[in-house]
Amino acid sequence: MQLLEIKDLMVSVEDNQILRGLNLTVGKGEVHVLMGPNGAGKSTLVNTVMGHPQYRVDGGKILFEGKEITHEPANERAKAGLFLSFQNPEEVPGISLENFMRTSRFAVTGKPVKLFAYKKELKQKMEHLNMDEEYASRYLNVGFSGGEKKKSEILQMMMLNPKLAILDETDSGLDVDAVKIVSQGVEKFHTSENSLLIITHNTKILDFLPVDAVHILMDGKIVRTGDRSLIDRINDSGFQGLEAPAV
């Protein structure tokens, strides 16, 4: 059984059709990379998989561990083991990052969170990400720089330990050092139990990861799937010539 199966997915936003029959499968422990030109529908895909109500599913279905989740609310998907690292994480005043993550972990696991052990774990993980401890007590993403927001996303991913983490351009807008730190965090997260679906333009984040498949998304469909060598091709000559569906 596959971890994530997307079958003939058709999605529209405000009556504009964005995804036109998309198929994608991610297995347990695998690392998949999703690339494509701007406006191809990459963010639409990941937001739909996570369950954003503004993305309307017109056809097809999404299965997670064999169970259909196409119409499940986002919180149920999170409980099932899905995670999305947002491209532009929301700022939510009035709740601290630490309290939020504790509430979130309780919501996802359904088990009471032991305060002392939790704090210790949080501190340790923040150190890994080279995040100042002070961020834990700050309001969720409020006033965080672009880089800090991305680190906060990866921190949440590490604390929730989802079965599948989708990273939507988590590496964009980061300086070289920050990309390295975030990449190491992602590498640490990835085990034979955890899968990744990574959207990226900057392939540096993949340096430490074994890539199982690379998918090219254009015009609302996966037009080509290949191995790591596909990345080099795109880095050399862009997306031109890939429009035709894969043979």
Partner: peptide, 10 residues
């Protein structure tokens, strides 16, 4: 949606 994606109900 952001909060819901972290397991929190609407």
């Amino acid at each position: 949606f952001y909060l819901m994606s972290r397991g929190i109900s609407e």
